[in-house]
């Protein structure tokens, strides 16, 4: 088995050289994990770069989180080649929540992007069918339940 620490620093080093000033930071907080912070226009090129170097990538999911003024997206990627879990993190402003779709590089992202869209109101530009996924049909337009300013009725 390949030595674990080397695998993480290899991924971190490669992304550092490949992404340049689009990269805000790389960290390796624990075994088999790399956390990458990139600008919102660089997510797709980051995933493409990872695919070119390490081959097939599995997208576990996309986590969306409301941080107040900004919305944070975390793309959880698993590399089949060396079992590293890469968290690609990016932020989009709440005033203009838009980001490019990654469905053209990872087709399995279709449902995850729809869920983030309905729950947090982020527009994925270029998504083949950006519609609601889980919410009921009579759910009002422009209400995003996982944003912090929305609270369920009748609860303290």
């Amino acid at each position: 088995m390949v030595h674990l620490v080397e695998v993480e620093s290899e991924v971190a080093e490669y992304l550092r050289t490949k992404l340049g000033d689009k990269l805000f930071g790389v960290a390796t907080p624990k075994k088999l994990r790399v956390v990458v912070r990139v600008s919102s226009d660089a997510v797709k090129s980051c995933i493409r770069a990872i695919q070119e170097k390490f081959g097939d990538v599995h997208l576990t999911t996309i986590t969306g989180c409301d941080l107040g003024e900004e919305l944070e997206l975390t793309y959880h990627l698993h590399l089949y080649a060396n079992n590293v879990h890469i968290m690609v993190k990016t932020k989009v402003p709440k005033s203009e929540p838009k980001i490019d779709t990654i469905t053209d590089v990872i087709p399995g992202a279709v449902l995850y992007e729809r869920e983030v869209y309905e729950m947090l109101g982020i527009q994925f530009i270029g998504h083949p069918k950006l519609e609601r996924l889980f919410l009921p049909d009579d759910w009002p337009e422009g209400i995003y339940p996982l944003r912090k300013d929305w609270r369920p009725e009748g609860l303290k």
Binding site: T60, T61, T63, D66, P107, G108, L111
Partner: peptide
Amino acid sequence: RWRVRTPTYANIP
């Protein structure tokens, strides 16, 4: 924030 991704959801596509 707590995010859960269940396996069946991943297998729908």
